[in-house]
Design a protein around this nucleic acid. Structure first.
Length: 241
DNA sequence: ACACTTTTCAGACCCTTAAT
DNA sequence: ATTAAGGGTCTGAAAAGTGT
């Protein structure tokens, strides 16, 4: 039974592990950091691991970051996770990050208005990189000049100074959809477009227009609607009537 | 004496708080 | 107002240990 009024016992440090294993703190660091082969004997390494397990030792990440000047943390900036697509983006990013011993912190850009306060003031100091959707550009502008490596999702490859871009082949997808419908004999299209003006939507619209224009008697009309299901349904119903 | 392996030392990281 | 200490971890260099 633990007394909630008693302060928690101090967390064991690498020094405690070293004392328990009868080695120096440096040896603990080597062993637990996986850099011991060739530097520390097998028997010593085992002793260190056993002591660490016994004490329930976990490295102090703040101290590690202090030493390394890195946090192994990336910020993911996307629109709300209620959108399934971005929920999957997060899952994928977190999985890949974990493979590289990185963590992912999520910043869902508030709907419409952008961040209430600059959420990145501390982020600038505690992040090693940013992954951002172009659809969260409001939030992203707050990061301007943060001097962090930036990976852009779904955005104009020529548009930003990002270190890398990850884009779907949107144009080809749009072409395939349009060709399919044209093949079925359809000729009059409504493009229910987002009212949000981003590169990814412009590419879709361009590919659609191009595919339709290639067929002499086909036509496309564009209707814009806010980017949510209810508004989309209303706009679709209106277009159909 | 020498080569090689294993372990330790010492300083850097950067910010906060206490002491001067 | 300025200086010094402390926090935990990591790593290159140095020291200690072992075997031939």
């Amino acid at each position: 039974m633990t007394d909630p009024h008693q302060p928690a016992p101090p967390r064991p440090t690498s020094r405690d592990v070293a004392r328990a294993a009868g080695v120096s703190q440096a040896t603990v660091s080597l062993v637990l950091g996986g850099k011991w082969p060739g530097r520390v004997s097998e028997a010593t390494a085992r002793r260190v691991r056993e002591s660490a397990a016994e004490l329930g030792y976990r490295p102090n990440l703040a101290a590690r970051s202090l030493r390394l000047g890195r946090t192994r943390t990336a910020l993911l900036v996307v629109p709300a996770l209620t959108n399934e697509f971005f929920a999957r983006v997060y899952t994928g990013a977190a999985a890949v990050a974990a493979e590289h011993d990185f963590g992912v912190v999520l910043y869902p850009s508030p709907d419409g208005t952008g961040p209430a306060r600059d959420p990145f003031a501390s982020a600038r100091a505690s992040l090693d990189g940013v992954i951002a959707s172009s659809m969260a550009s409001d939030a992203l502008s707050a990061l301007h000049g943060a001097d962090l490596p930036l990976v852009m999702l779904d955005s104009d490859p020529a548009g930003t100074d990002a270190a890398a871009h990850v884009n779907l082949d949107i144009a080809d997808g749009m072409r395939q959809v349009t060709d399919h419908l044209l093949g079925l004999g359809h000729r009059r299209f409504v493009h229910l477009a987002s009212a949000v003006d981003t590169w990814t939507f412009a590419v879709r619209a361009g590919a659609l227009r191009e595919a339709v224009d290639a067929v002499p008697d086909a036509e496309v009309r564009t209707v814009r609607a806010p980017l949510d299901v209810r508004a989309g349904r209303e706009a679709a119903e209106q277009a159909l009537t």
